[in-house]
Design a protein around this nucleic acid. Sequence first.
DNA 1: GATCGAAATAAAAACGTTTTTATTTTACTT
DNA 2: AAGTAAAATAAAAACGTTTTTATTTCGATC
Lengths: 355, 355
Amino acid sequence: MATDPTRVPIKRPATIKTLADTTGYSIATISKALRGSPVVAPATRDAIFAAARAAGYQANARGMALRTGKTYQAAVLMPVTAADDYEWDGVEYTQILSGISQALEGSDYRMTVHVIRDAADGCEVARRIVAQGLADGLIFSGILAEDPRIDFLVDSDFPFVSLGRCRKPLAYAHVDIDNEWAAHAATARLIAGGHRRIALINPQRRLSYAMDRIDGFHRAFREEGLEASSDLVAEGDLSTRFGRQSAIDLMRLPKPPTAFVCVNESTTLGVLSALGSLGRRIGHDVDVIAYDDINVSAYFTPPITTFYQPIEVLGRALGQFLLRRMAGEGPQALRQVFRPTMIERQPDGMAVRPA
Amino acid sequence: MATDPTRVPIKRPATIKTLADTTGYSIATISKALRGSPVVAPATRDAIFAAARAAGYQANARGMALRTGKTYQAAVLMPVTAADDYEWDGVEYTQILSGISQALEGSDYRMTVHVIRDAADGCEVARRIVAQGLADGLIFSGILAEDPRIDFLVDSDFPFVSLGRCRKPLAYAHVDIDNEWAAHAATARLIAGGHRRIALINPQRRLSYAMDRIDGFHRAFREEGLEASSDLVAEGDLSTRFGRQSAIDLMRLPKPPTAFVCVNESTTLGVLSALGSLGRRIGHDVDVIAYDDINVSAYFTPPITTFYQPIEVLGRALGQFLLRRMAGEGPQALRQVFRPTMIERQPDGMAVRPA
DNA sequence: GATCGAAATAAAAACGTTTTTATTTTACTT
DNA sequence: AAGTAAAATAAAAACGTTTTTATTTCGATC
């Protein structure tokens, strides 16, 4: 069959060899010039750059990858819960990815996302990424008190940044929220408002930040010479369903809580849903303070007091730190712990209520 | 400095050359055997496989990529809204990515996520992916009525699957929700309930599915011999803030709506927030029906009737279709349009209300 | 028993880089 | 003007594959 004359012949993209032909220099010189090596004369460098621009030259990532052993990929482990469930969960990851991507913009790195089902899966994926050299760096979250991924990666000297800290005194790059401080601040506010029976809706205790939150919760009581309402700590996944069920269970106790401290916006929604079903009114019968990282609590009815930290900012820090880590920088300076801002939307005090 | 004797020497991973040495076959035979080529004798194939397993051989992705020109990457364009905003938006993308990732599991493909700011950005990124061969296939959403990405990719014969359909009669693989049907069903239900002033909270009209929804909305009125309340169609981004502001504006009209049809869960939350602020009670003063793809509406107070389609399922279809497309299959059979399920949580009728 | 063809395997080339080593050119010193 | 060092460039090797082409082996045919 005859070739279609209207179809322009697909001209293969310019390579370093093409440029060598057009400029008359060797491929070695071309490569050095484009990488900005000082050994090549300024005049030839300019000529080569001009030729490269004219040819629309773009370095072939595969060739570079093979030669250098680098992948120019930053891997991110994204946790998702069981597949047949479809509960509202992990919604903040969109913002995390957005932040990381912003940080990577302008660099040569691209972002690959690896979905993981649980901690064990995450550990296996991390090992595979290192063993097969699937990426040059790694970002992950959901840090356990003793996280095997951190142990492994520190040990194999693989660049990574964690969103969250483990409880071992290791040197590694990380970004975190000051959960101890936030849980303390929320609890203290409720205690100051006259609450004594305060529920803590918390993640599973093996998660490092769950323990941080419990620490802060207890410290708030201790500082007032009170004993923490340990029987009111609910632990589970971060789904809306869990928040709802926990609140229902807690409100059925002989001495139910008068206030809730919630770990995130999705459990909060569940708690509000439960209290609504039970006919309890927020700010009248019960108070709720939440941590929020996607700024949604302002739209709850009624709006509630939250500790807010836009998580996209943490995502950006993660990406920036990873770039520096992949460039060879040590982990010492690459740590940042954010304190969320309190956004007061309710008085959160028992005293202000109409009898 | 002396090398640490406790440190095991990092043995470089097995390559095809290593296997050639240990087995005595040539690298060509090794390669053919591992790819399952029929030209190699069964006995040698078995021997080679055994040696590969023993050595823990894993094909080097970079070598393969360079030789074959393939990347073994499936790119996904993830839209995010303006960076300094942090409104709750795009939360469903976690589920989409999860679904795609599930479909890719077991294949040789990995998922790269490219964050895009707007339609123009998306177009540019798509072009770069094709031009630089950054991926072997592409998935994207937010399809415009006339989407330049689809035009371009169809024209360059690059494998892709879109989440949503454009309004041009082109042959391309896609997955979509039957938005015309869903908007019609929601509107018809409200009309049957006695509503005549119905507001439609919709995305920007340039989005293809925004037009689908308007079509369904109008058809529902037309079928009853009524005229659609076109003045009650609000168009904007899909943020909670937009939902809230739209509802406030609409309720201030001389003849405000008695019901709302909302495009997604985040705008719905905004509408409910607005109605709550204005003292209107859902199911008493006003009805709200929404489309929901992350199953969160059950937790609103009160729960509202929704059209529900778990978007992770669409994500899986996207991934499956892309794999087949990248394997060389034509786009004809790779189309699927999902009809969401109605979940009735309110009567949604004016007649049932107490006077 | 030489010839042929098929089957099996080996050799070599190629993909596009970077980097090490080698060569040429230039500029300086004496 | 010869010698030398430095600067600039070129050549070649390497990264790990796949694929095309070449060679060997072996049984069957005449």
